[in-house]
Amino acid sequence: MEFFLQQLFSGLAFGGVYACMALAVVMIYQATDHLNFAQGEMAMFSTYIAYTLISHGVPYWWTFLLAMAISFVGGVMIERIIVRPVEGTSVLNEVIVFIGLLTIFNSLAGWIWEYTIKPFPSPFPKDPLFGNTFVGTHDLGVIGVTLVVLFGVFLFFRYTPIGLAMRAAAQDPASARLVGIRVGWMLALGWGLAAAIGAVAGILVAPIVFLEPNMMGSILLYGFAGALLGGITNPAGAVFGGFAVGVLETLIGAYVSFIGSELKLTVALVLIIAVLVFRPSGLFGRVVVKRV
């Protein structure tokens, strides 16, 4: 039982990180029908920025907010400057630009901070809370922080005029323009928010997986799996999917002996293909009717 609880909480902690990535992916997908393959590397880059801030003595939580803000601005700029020119040309062109971005961020990180693995601090105490034996405090902190962030995102979209305008712009750009919404900027804001949420994921997972330029590759993959599982058209579903994938991945790794750590990614691959083939709308997504 205790082992199970340990695995469950560890899974939930990873799940929170995946949920953030899934939400970031969904946010951009909803607005523009793009899957941002560079989302993981952007998050990794944000984490390095946080690392630099911390090593210059900026307190942890200030770093956290600052890194989110910097990532937000960076995301907005990437959309405006790099993605905009290929917007709506073809899937091929768009994906190629995302792959280009991914590659650039990955190598820039290696260039600036080198490829050596770096430890990343956790703001939470090392000792388990109340001397319990089944959940580490960092894991608990990750779950808590991701929930707070996700809830904040929910409130933003649900209750602020800008959030409403962003939803409107994503749903029906033509009508959104007719009520005076600057759709282009809404897309850029979406990129900014996605980048900021990605930064949260990166900063929270870095103490567990350590900081290195390739740290987010597999995490983005789990994020994709979570987004698809929950429904790529449904942000809440994607968050659920992220948590579900985290728990699933950890439990399978722990209990199914022949899978171990190496095949976990294969599980994600199989999950992605299975969802895409058998239930493309995911558990909670809308069925998208393809217009021909």
Binding site: P161, L164, R167, A168, Q171, D172, S175, A176, G180, I181
Partner: peptide
């Protein structure tokens, strides 16, 4: 009509006053 079909009626109306 350009309805935002997945938003509520009230949200649609409030969007009219966006500016």
């Amino acid at each position: 009509r350009g309805t935002f079909v997945r938003l509520t009626t009230e949200e649609n109306l409030r969007l009219g006053a966006y500016t």
